[in-house]
């Protein structure tokens, strides 16, 4: 990773979709207080709420005994976000193409696509301790 590491912070939220705004508040407050431009903040907020919602609903399957960890690392050149759930894991390649004509009117299924569209890199890994980790990167110096 390029740039000098400045800081890393973390939020743990329960698997309740009603708590999604806590992830947004956490992220936006952290990024704005560090002078990240508004356009990048909103893109990151959209992508992060997608991934946290997926972790709660599809990863942890709304199990109140499980949590989602959202961590944020900000350097001079980029923001790296990790979303960790405690679920069984899934293959993001199996998600139906939301741009296919037959899927355009589906009410769900766009979250990963939107996150990939807005971020520079979105990577899924199996967490050694169980569950999935999604690692998202966004440059603070867009070309």
């Amino acid at each position: 990773m390029s740039g000098t590491s400045r800081d890393s912070i973390e939020l743990v939220i329960p698997s309740d979709p009603g708590r999604i705004s806590e992830a947004d508040d956490f992220l936006e407050t952290a990024l704005r207080s560090r002078g990240v431009p508004d356009a990048i903040v909103s893109d990151m907020a959209i992508a992060t709420t997608e991934l946290v919602n997926n972790a709660i609903v599809h990863g942890n399957k709304r199990d109140a005994t499980k949590t989602v960890i959202l961590s944020l690392q900000i350097t001079d050149s980029e923001v790296v976000i990790r979303v960790v759930d405690q679920g069984e894991g899934f293959d993001p390649g199996q998600v139906p193409d939301p741009l296919a004509q037959e899927n355009l009117l589906r009410e769900v299924g766009r979250g990963i696509f939107i996150a990939r569209s807005l971020m520079d890199d979105v990577r899924y890994e199996r967490n050694p301790g169980g569950g999935m980790v999604v690692i998202v990167r966004k440059s603070l110096n867009p070309a």
Binding site: S42, A45, I46, T49, N53, L105, E107, V108, G111
Partner: peptide, 16 residues
């Protein structure tokens, strides 16, 4: 300010 896929899903639900 912005919406994510949940917001888009609500618009689609209303539209259909």
């Amino acid at each position: 300010d912005w919406m994510n896929s949940t917001g888009l899903g609500i618009l689609i639900s209303g539209l259909t």
